[in-house]
Amino acid sequence: MSVRSTLLRRVVATAALSMALGSTPAFSADRELLNASYDIARELFAELNPQFIEQWQKEHNESVEIKQTHAGSSTQARAILQGLRADVVTFNQVTDVDVLAQKGQLIPADWQSRLPNYSSPYYSTMAFLVRKGNPKNIHGWSDLAGDDVALVFPNPKTSGNGRYTYLAAWAASNHDNGDDEAATRDYMKKMLGNVEVFDTGGRGATTTFAERGIGDVLITFESEANNIRNQYGPDDYEVVVPPVDIMAEFPVTWVDKNVERNGTEDLAKGYLEYLYSPEAQRTLAQYYYRVNDDEISDEFAERFPQTTLLRIEDAFGSWGNVMQTHFASGGELDQLQRR
């Protein structure tokens, strides 16, 4: 937004507001940063941002404001392509950041090498939320193909969450049977056949499982599974992390074209680097995200069961490859679901 339009907006909005409430908001920061993020990260960044602002003020003697926008990360990527001037993105899908490089040339193609751990300050994996006492005895991915197990997870076609579930099941099966593709396909057919409801998104699947009481297992990110358990009753649900699982990265990057324009490059970098600091990593771990900081990992070791995590790039080659072979129209997923 240009300076003039911001000013105009302020003036008119202030006039409107003072008429409405008889008060004017008196707050202004030196610089602003817009963080485009995925939709379940609202509370997380509401906690991280004030910490960063305080630290930046201390170190640079400058007051900054962090604005947030949250939506599905594909929606966000498209909005940025269409002109949303986000300075940084904090997504839950690598492919959605790739889009910014490929379709918009807004960031360089090698963005993942700009920050540590493939530009992923925290990560998660898929977990099973089961009903109290784990009555169906679910411990690993192979148990999901059992005869009397009803599954709930979002549709892999529409949801990143569902995509990870599908890929984790595939990779874990391949890992267990020594890359026997035919056996993996048989397993996937059974597993997908056990799905009771395919909701379009993670929130919908949560509602189906926890509020409507459908299904034996809800498969979602470990962080989400723990938050859902805490929200809907720690005594009614258990979180199970399978012994072999997928690494779900949460990629971040600054949007070069936008920070250049907004004059926020140093601030954007500082913000993303802050996410790797012990303080931020502790907050992240408190929200049940796995972190790379060794000390913090040890501190929260109890929350995160040991598991072998497979990277998408190692198990499937690349994300581009995954999208094409598995999720494109007529791909593996479509063929597996044809009964």
Binding site: V12, A13, T14, A16, L17, M19, A20, L21, P25
Partner: peptide, 14 residues
């Protein structure tokens, strides 16, 4: 909420 009210009124006002 105040910002939302402000924006809502701004939109209507224009």
């Amino acid at each position: 909420t105040r910002e939302a009210i402000g924006l809502t009124l701004l939109i209507a006002l224009l």
